[in-house]
Each structure stands twice: as C-alpha cells, then as structure tokens.
Computed example of a mutant assay.
Amino acid sequence: MIAFLNQKGGAGKTTLATHLAGELAMQGQRVTLLDADPQGSALDWAQRRSQSGHKRLYGVFGLARDSLHQEAPQIALRSDYVVIDGPPRVAALARSALLAADLVLIPVQPSAYDVWASQEMVQLVAEARVFRPQLLAAFVINRRVVGTVIGREARQALADQPFPALRAEVSQRIVFADSVAAGRLACEVAPQCAASREIAALAQAARDMLRESVRESLRESRR
C-alpha cells in the first residue's frame, strides 16, 4: 500500500496518486486507488474518465473514514498495489492511512513554505512508527519548474529530515492539467512525453523502496 499524504493542500497528491496507479496498472499490476480525501477528487477523475468512454485501468473507491486502516487490508487481498490519495488537514484520516500504508510518499512543492509545512507530516509519520516501525516514508519533490534551481534548493532543505527525498522528481507541466480535465493520464494525452517518463521513474523508485524493505526483512529473519 502506497499512500500520498501531506497536511498542506495543493501539493499535488491526487495527480500523483492517479498517475502512479495508472503507471502500475499499465505494467500489468492489479491496482486499486482509495480516495481518502473528503473532497473526492480522485473519484471525480474516475467519473470523468468513465463518462468520456476511456478504458478502465483500475478501480477507484471512496474511503474517507478513519477506519481506513481496518478496511483497506481486505481490499488489498484483490490487488497487487493499493494507492491511497490522502486528505489535507484531517489528522484522523491521515493517521488511519499511515496505519494502513507500507510506504508513505509526501509530495512537497519546491518552496520554503512547503518544506516548512511538511513538519506536521513528519511528526505524524513518527507517531505512526511507534505502532508500525517498518513504515517507509520519503518526500517527492513535485511541481518543480523546469529550468530553475529551486528544486535543488528544496532537496537541500529536505536533507535534514529523518527520511529521504526520492531522486525521481515530477515537474510542473501543462499535460498534467490537460490530462486530469479529460479523465486521462499524461502518457495517454502525450505518449513518451517528459511527464510520462517522470511518473515511470517515480513508480520505479517506489517499487525499489518496497522491494528493498522486503529483502531487508528476509535478511533479518535469517539472522
């Protein structure tokens, strides 16, 4: 289970969640997306996709309840990956998503304000690790403006945090806005575009983290 969480609104959680789920599905994985945001943006995207007659890539279900961690495991039995689009500013829902997730990805826009705002999420992850010490966490620099150095500065600002920033970054690109409005993915609107390559790199980074965690667990069990 991979959860996109950030207590700050506007970080791009839904865009990343729908695109990561789509990338995994296109790789042949069985994927479910859980919309844990009361605003229901991922559900709206899925509805637009259905109304436009586009192929269904994965199931999208609304689960904006603080019992998410109790209900999600049953859903996971039918999926290879469950992607959770988390809520902003709803700590109870965020805590429930953290208790369900194997990996939490925290989208951070490359600005000092977003880096500062991420501290609340860092604290929530620390609290969740008391109960689930195996919980993985990483930052994702999102909406980086191409051709600027501000993304590098954001990475430097995140260097002091207790978990890493993924090397895979996602830039601010018009194709994301165009694809969301049509209920599609960037790779469907513009195949082989830079946005598609960035999402593929993000999916690979997430899978690598999860695989390394499994390998580490196996090594520990053999000691």
Rank of each mutant, 00 (worst) to 15 (best):
M1K: 04
F4Q: 03
F4D: 03
A11L: 04
A11Q: 15
K13C: 09
T15R: 10
T18I: 15
A21K: 12
Q29Y: 12
L33G: 11
L33C: 12
D35Y: 07
S41Q: 06
S41D: 08
W45N: 06
S50P: 00
H54E: 13
G59C: 08
L63N: 02
R65V: 15
D66R: 14
P73K: 09
P73F: 09
P73L: 10
Q74D: 14
I75A: 04
V83R: 02
P87G: 00
V90C: 06
A91N: 06
A92F: 04
R95E: 14
S96M: 10
L98K: 06
L98R: 07
A100C: 02
A101R: 03
V104W: 04
E120A: 13
M121Q: 13
L124I: 00
E127C: 00
E127I: 01
E127Q: 14
F131N: 03
A138D: 03
R143F: 11
V145F: 08
V146R: 15
R155Q: 13
A159V: 05
A168T: 08
S171Q: 15
Q172P: 07
G183T: 10
R184M: 15
R184K: 14
A190Q: 14
P191D: 12
P191Y: 12
A194H: 11
I199H: 07
Q204P: 01
V214D: 13
R215M: 10
S217R: 15
R219S: 06
S221V: 07
